[in-house]
Design a protein around this nucleic acid. Sequence first.
DNA 1: GTGAAAGCGCTAACAG
DNA 2: CTGTTAGCGCTTTCAC
Lengths: 389, 389
Amino acid sequence: MHMLVSDTSIETSELITSIKAWPSMNTQRVKKIAAQSIDGERRPVTAHDVAKLAGVSQSAVSRTFTKGASVSDETRQKVTRAAKELGYRPNFLARSLITGRSKIIGVTIPGLSNQFYSAALDSLSTIFSEAGYRIMLFSTMPDETSDPILEEVLRYRVDALVLVSSSLSSHFADECQQIGLPVVLLNRKTNSKIASSVTGDNRNGAKAIGAFLVAGGHQRLAYIAGLESSSTSRDREKGFSSYLAAKGFAAPMRAVGNYSYESAAAATRELLSRKAPPDAIFCANDYMALAAINVARSEFNLTVGHNISIVGFDDTELAAWPTFSLTTYSQPIRTMVDRVVRIVIDTLLNKEMPSIQEVVPGQLVVRESARIPAIGMKLIDGVRIWSSV
Amino acid sequence: MHMLVSDTSIETSELITSIKAWPSMNTQRVKKIAAQSIDGERRPVTAHDVAKLAGVSQSAVSRTFTKGASVSDETRQKVTRAAKELGYRPNFLARSLITGRSKIIGVTIPGLSNQFYSAALDSLSTIFSEAGYRIMLFSTMPDETSDPILEEVLRYRVDALVLVSSSLSSHFADECQQIGLPVVLLNRKTNSKIASSVTGDNRNGAKAIGAFLVAGGHQRLAYIAGLESSSTSRDREKGFSSYLAAKGFAAPMRAVGNYSYESAAAATRELLSRKAPPDAIFCANDYMALAAINVARSEFNLTVGHNISIVGFDDTELAAWPTFSLTTYSQPIRTMVDRVVRIVIDTLLNKEMPSIQEVVPGQLVVRESARIPAIGMKLIDGVRIWSSV
DNA sequence: GTGAAAGCGCTAACAG
DNA sequence: CTGTTAGCGCTTTCAC
């Protein structure tokens, strides 16, 4: 199909000549390269091509692009020049085949509507990128075993797996351990001793919120839970309820918001329609708290912070918007992601590292969505914080 | 370093025996496999291993995992069984080395704070995933030539590049064309004939907003621009201004919000502080419109929709929240992403396809953040739409 | 410091 | 349909 024509361009004939002069070059390859110039079917430029142009061995080219390899300045010069001229880019996929490291991190996230997730992804991308890793994104369904997706991830030979707000089946955990793949959960815990995890301080945060609401004189407390299957929501509920119990309060009312806007809105509706509605609602995360605020205002004509107190968890960007001014316990996402990256890299360097469960403390950021107690307020770095005592 | 010891486990000895029986197996490999069982340094299982266990050739294994290859049911059975037993997963990276297709799509996004971006990414991930592609994420700085990042992307041999809300340097466009890499811009246009693009209907949307505000009886109009360098913001401004000019209105006031929250808030502040402040502000996107609403309410005590009209562009999830109830021209992100994916796949199948610039129409979704004209309202599928006769 | 050669795990002709 | 063979583009001993 491909034919060598006589009136090829100058560059082409030069190429062919130089190739013919190359002893180890087989005819098949020559044809290919000739064909390239004829029908425009461009073959990506390889280290071989660069080597040829630079008049060095292919390994010299490789060394030039491999940090920590020893090449003379002269060779490096020649190679670099040739590479630029040809527009050469090392093929990372080929590299990873031999090094056994893809420099790719698999990240799963259950959608991005919740700002906490998008902020997490943003940080993950940025910080991993600084460390020389790229992120391959996998969307999952919330509250669903993502094993089939994870199965996919592994085929790409990711160097590590970061699961944001989703749990790890024990089956899959074993699988990962077997192949020596580091797994880190972000914003969710695991009882498997295989994966590491980084979470906010769910127990103490929820406890602080309980104390804050009690100190504010609230009488009828409620909790809007996230996904029942989520360790995060359970921990927050536990922290909240156990504090209340310890202080002699009745168990809080309860509704389930599943971490979704609609579901949380419905939960709020239900709570506020009761004969004795709550005077304070603690939502398992900011996203649901914002839904609650929307519903309380638009459907129940309540003035949030006066007739009703609403508190969230996360301190996402939206919480600080004046329109919401949400009081919430913060999860310092940037710090948390820093920890995740650190754990991943450490594990990659030292395979024998035990898994660790890290808890990153936050603070109760006070704004105006909930009545403010008379005492306990502090101003730290310009943000209003509350703490008991 | 590795030594063959005599008391290896049963599995190990069996393995070694079977390997020795394998003629083309070199001793190096035998040592490696033996070593694996000794020091626990697990070598990922390969098609070779599966072939051995199944008693077939390695290509038979490959074929069973390559769709469209012909394998007898019997062979497939044997292979599948062996693969499962060993926990075999084909190495996509190795595959792409030979097929020349990585099944990876590079996606760049300028941060995820703006919900439009996160929604776009979400859709991209979902829809590409359904088509068998994975997304590699690259965060970029807004309004910055992302060439260095793109340089990185190419090293991973992505099959295509999707740039969300960022422009393509002509230098890089050439580069991409040379290597035959499809590039699609989402939410931004390009004058280069190399890349394709999918955008909302910026001109007509902005025009409709102009008409809507005029019909609502507004007198002093203002525009808050996005990044000056963005085609999107320029097109919207042009549509807006030219409509006003055609109707004999003065040119709208103008401030720059750079698509960022803080910057848009500052722009709003500036506009509303003027001696003759605007009675209607059209913001180049929803994110800035929300900033404007926050500022108008909290700092100027205005009742949005009464004292002041604020209109956005995108119709993101937040726009529909009762607290904002933002009137905005919609960009059907799902449809837009569908188009992007379609273009990418078509181009991948047919390299000679010309680049195309697609415009996806939206509609003016009317809520309560702007005064509503006496005529022109329609109810379509439960949403309130406005259009000039 | 440098080139030759082996091979990472896989697919794709090619004979049978 | 099946096994054999030849690489995909790269890194890494190993001699020199």
